[in-house]
Amino acid sequence: MNKSEIKKLIISSLDRDVDTKEIAGKLEEAGVSYNFSQTFGDKVLNKLFSAGVTIGREVEFVKYMNVAFYRIALTGVAAIVILLISIFLMQGSLSVDSFLGLGNTHDESIICLLTGN
C-alpha cells in the first residue's frame, strides 16, 4: 500500500458510516501493528504471583480495613441514634439543655443545687 493510500485509509477511519474493523485489518496488513515484547505475559504474571504476593496481601488488608471501617461506622451511627432517642424520651426534646441533662431543671433549682440553700 503506498503513502497516499495509507493516508486515505487513516482519514476514512473517522468517517461516520465506515467499516472500521475492515480499516483496522487493512492497516495491520500494511504493517501498522503493535505488540509488547515476547516476555510481556511472563512479566505480568511474575509481578502478580511472585513479587506481587505482598501487594496482594496489602490489597487484601486494605479491603478488610474498608469492611471494618463500615462496620465500626455503622455501629457508631446506631449508638448515636439510640442516644438521641433515649434523650428525647427522657427529656422530651433534643435541645442543647437536654443533651447536657438540664432539660427539666429550672434556673432556681440550679442555684439551690450550687449554693446548697
Binding site: M1, N2, K3, I6, I10, L27, A30, G31, V32, S33
Partner: peptide, 15 residues
Amino acid sequence: DTEERREASEIVNKA
C-alpha cells in the same frame, strides 16, 4: 519490515 510497511507504520504513528 519492508520499506513500504515501515512507511505505513511511520505515517500512522506520526499522525
